[in-house]
């Protein structure tokens, strides 16, 4: 019985309906249901994390074993992972929490993770330029419109724009407040309706592709 899709679909239906109904009932336990379900999600995700680690580390172990082209880097990944976990455990024993200011765990965060993250993030300065260049070359109406608006808004927000024309910042403000806002609301309305469609298809069991 459990092997069929029947029970999972019923669970989805029931959970979905409870969530909808609880929106209208502030009384306990319905009032807290959103908070509770998010906590539950994080607990489930916490356990599933082990599946994730199994998937990732397993993959790199296989690469290491097969001496794949990039085996050395797989080793770097495994060492990075193991070292972080081990340091975390040691520092938890030393300071009571791994997140103590003096712990090496915090050092790993500050000197490995933070610079790597923020440098990845800053790559966007280059990517945004190359994307803009592409839009510039596309030469169709939509792309040109996008690019012209982008240039106006960009200039309108820097001191140079004010020097070109005092109307530029005002015009930028108008673009943001009127046409930009209008399209954003239209897209937003579409998204809400689309989300309702997706939810209803899933809750009613019309869409069941997420179950095998």
């Amino acid at each position: 019985m459990l092997k069929g899709k029947g029970i999972p679909i019923f669970i989805t239906f029931l959970t979905g309906m409870i969530m909808i109904i609880s929106f209208f009932i502030p009384h306990k336990p319905f009032g807290d249901i959103e908070k509770i379900s998010l906590t539950w999600y994080s607990i489930i995700a916490g356990f599933t994390m082990l599946l994730g680690v199994d998937s990732l580390i397993g993959m790199h172990f296989r690469k290491l074993k097969r001496k794949d082209e990039n085996w050395f880097f797989s080793l770097v990944l495994i060492i990075g992972f193991t070292a972080t976990v081990v340091v975390g455990i040691i520092e938890t024993v030393r300071f009571g929490t791994a997140f103590d200011e003096r712990s090496y765990f915090t050092y790993i965060y500050n000197y490995f993770i933070v610079p790597l993250q923020s440098t990845m993030f800053s790559l966007l300065a280059f990517f945004i330029a190359s994307a803009a260049y592409r839009a510039f070359r596309a030469r169709n109406f939509d792309a040109t419109l996008l690019l012209i608006t982008a240039i106006i808004v960009m200039l309108g927000r820097v001191p140079l724009g004010e020097q070109i024309s005092p109307y530029l910042p005002k015009f930028t403000e108008w673009i943001m407040q009127v046409p930009q806002m209008a399209a954003k609301r239209g897209i937003g309305l579409g998204i809400s309706l689309g989300a309702l469609g997706v939810s209803i298809r899933i809750i009613l069991g019309i869409e069941r592709s997420y179950l095998s």
């Binding site: 994390m49 680690v53 998937s55 990732l56 993959m59 993770i113 993250q117």
Partner: peptide, 9 residues
């Protein structure tokens, strides 16, 4: 496969 729960990672 799983990669990581870190946005830029």
């Amino acid at each position: 496969m799983y990669i990581t729960q870190d946005q830029f990672g």
